[in-house]
């Protein structure tokens, strides 16, 4: 399809990017944490992809290339607004994350996501992860990219992807397990007439 676009069938670009609309937006949001900024960064990333389509090399995956473009776009915006921001971490550090220790867990069904406060808890916890963990978590868990593609998109080793994902999962368990448990067990507020 890329060859067809480059040889004149420009309208096909709409179809080419359709499967990646959500991924690109989510990656921008995971860095910028603001919906309007993320949407703008996502649009800019797709425009850059269009203008630079001739530079895409078919040995790379198109999705990885797009993710790299949106990450660069979002990082550029972050640097402009938060120049002191650093995303460096030491993956070889020995400080392991300790999960929340519970003695039992009552499964929280997916239907609970119909409640907006549950969705908000989950969003806040993910967006509160340190940036290097957040990027890996969103790519691996939400976008279901494999370890190799995640490593390529982020320019880190596969070992770092695995380590960051592991820590991100335990950080989320630590924060969310008690919050979800109390949110789900708390009775919904009802309006009482008497």
């Amino acid at each position: 399809m890329i060859a067809a676009i480059l040889s004149g069938e420009r309208e096909l670009f709409h179809e080419l990017i359709r499967p990646y609309e959500r991924t690109v937006y989510l990656m921008a949001l995971s860095l910028l944490k603001n919906e309007a900024e993320a949407e703008d960064a996502a649009q800019e990333a797709f425009l850059k992809a269009y203008r630079n389509l001739a530079r895409f090399r078919s040995e790379a995956r198109f999705s990885t290339w797009l993710i790299t473009i949106v990450l660069n776009e979002a990082r550029g915006r972050l640097r402009r607004t938060q120049p002191a921001l650093t995303d460096s971490i030491d993956d070889d550090r020995e400080d392991n994350v300790t999960p929340m220790q519970l003695t039992d867990w009552r499964e929280i069904p997916s239907q609970s996501l119909e409640r907006s406060e549950i969705r908000t808890l989950l969003r806040r916890a993910m967006l509160a992860l340190p940036l290097p963990y957040r990027e890996v978590f969103i790519l691996r868990e939400l976008e279901e990219r494999n370890v190799q593609e995640t490593a390529e998109a982020l320019g880190i080793t596969q070992a770092s992807v695995k380590m960051r994902l592991h820590r991100a999962r335990l950080m989320l368990q630590k924060q969310l397990a008690p919050q979800l448990k109390s949110a789900v067990s708390a009775p919904r507020r009802r309006f009482l007439w008497f």
Partner: peptide, 29 residues
């Protein structure tokens, strides 16, 4: 319980309903 809660939380976080696209995002794009 750590394993069950982690597995459960991963299923919930991966659900598309958690992060919804802004209304009109696709049209504007």
């Amino acid at each position: 319980a750590v394993l069950d809660s982690t597995r459960n939380i991963l299923i919930l976080t991966a659900d598309d309903r958690v992060f919804e696209l802004p209304l009109g995002y696709r049209e504007r794009l």
